[in-house]
Write a protein that binds this DNA or RNA. Structure first.
Lengths: 212, 212
DNA sequence: GGATTTGATGAAGGATTCTTCAGGTTTGGA
DNA sequence: TCCAAACCTGAAGAATCCTTCATCAAATCC
């Protein structure tokens, strides 16, 4: 998974008939399932194919290699989370800074928690698949969404700058990762969610020098 | 690297003679070097041994398996960082909250940055070796150090609670990871350091309800 | 100086996994 | 009905890599 290997991550063939579309979906699902039930170490292409109810050859008809299968799963998950954050940002415009921050953070936490098991499983393989680069890319998208939202805040003159927003997102993501990987209880998550909101709110407020 | 495999992570034999102590040290160094020059994918026990100037058999005389070699390297790095944070905490007692926070955060950032390359290389293999569990354990140690420091703050009645401190440390570590993995420039790091200090300061202040 | 313990060697065993491809099956249209 | 394209199969090739162990060298002790 060196950087240049990423070029070989694109899917190999696009489904044409309905049955192959089903196959691809099954492989995608199976990947997560194998990850959850067997762990990252015993995640083999053969096992994924078997779980999906197809043969290995079929898997390799749609993905050029094992990494691309995992990459697709990771990408799907991160996109899903990012989309929810973006939706929350769009829905929280024209409100006070702390309100929009709260809604955004909660959307993120909830998106991650919704399938905590998948999140944790994917953290485990992220590094093997160029996860950091993907996270960086998707993180930029989220940053823009947050930035756009903050520009409409009703109680600040100018929004925090780019770096501050990136910092907040990185901190938010990192804190969430710690929590998920430590296998915290549901009760602890409720408290942690509040804390994370507070953390982001206080930072956003502090990073906003001038108020109206 | 499932949980039960961790039992096999302890070193196999302790060096008795001077030459073997040298060997162990060489293996440790070589591990990092191979990781940096060849990448995580081409990190093999044979290569590590070769780089260390010994044979594979020697390596297996001190480590029960490949994972334990990496685990030792990760542990060494994290301990080193934690120690610096603890030292900073000890040296920042009896000061205002924001001062101690600043010193602590800066110590952490500087410790990570000192060998940014190693930090990044180890992030890459962390998951393969049970890194999260180790991070959790060492994180607890750091939390206690921070907690003890905060209890001596001159300008607050009671320090933030356990969860808040854990949250801050998780956010701080996560943000740092993001930064390092994104390969930010030195100039950006200087700004990021300030931002991270601000983030932690504002959160600590917010998490402290009652002031004197 | 000889015996014992500690340390080092590295070829070879053993196991696993990724990936391919030649050949068979199903689908959909003409 | 028949054909071409799309799809699927899964045994086998090929490449790695981890780990061991019988054997040799060095160091320490008595």
């Amino acid at each position: 998974m060196t950087a240049d290997a990423v070029v070989a991550f694109e899917p190999r063939k696009t489904p044409v008939q309905a049955r192959s579309a089903v196959t691809v979906e099954a492989i995608s699902e199976a990947t997560i399932q194998v990850l959850l039930t067997h762990g990252a170490d015993r995640l083999t292409t053969t096992r994924i194919a078997h779980r999906a109810g197809v043969s290995v050859g079929t898997l390799y008809q749609y993905y050029p290699n094992k990494q691309s299968v995992l990459f697709a799963a990771l990408e799907h998950h991160l996109n899903s989370v990012a989309k929810k954050v973006e939706t929350a940002c769009a829905g929280a415009c024209h409100k006070p800074l702390s309100d929009m921050t709260k809604e955004m953070v909660e959307a993120f936490v909830d998106a991650k928690m919704e399938r905590a098991d998948i999140s944790v499983a994917l953290y485990r393989v992220s590094a093997d698949v160029g996860g950091p680069a993907l996270i960086k890319r998707i993180g930029q998208r989220s940053r823009k969404a947050v930035e756009a939202m903050l520009r409409t805040a009703t109680d600040i003159a100018s929004p925090p700058d780019k770096l501050a927003i990136e910092m907040m997102l990185a901190a938010m993501g990192g804190a969430m990762r710690s929590l998920l990987e430590s296998g915290a209880s549901a009760a602890m998550f409720r408290q942690a969610r509040e804390q994370l909101v507070l953390l982001c709110q206080s930072y956003m407020a502090a990073a906003t020098s001038k108020r109206l």
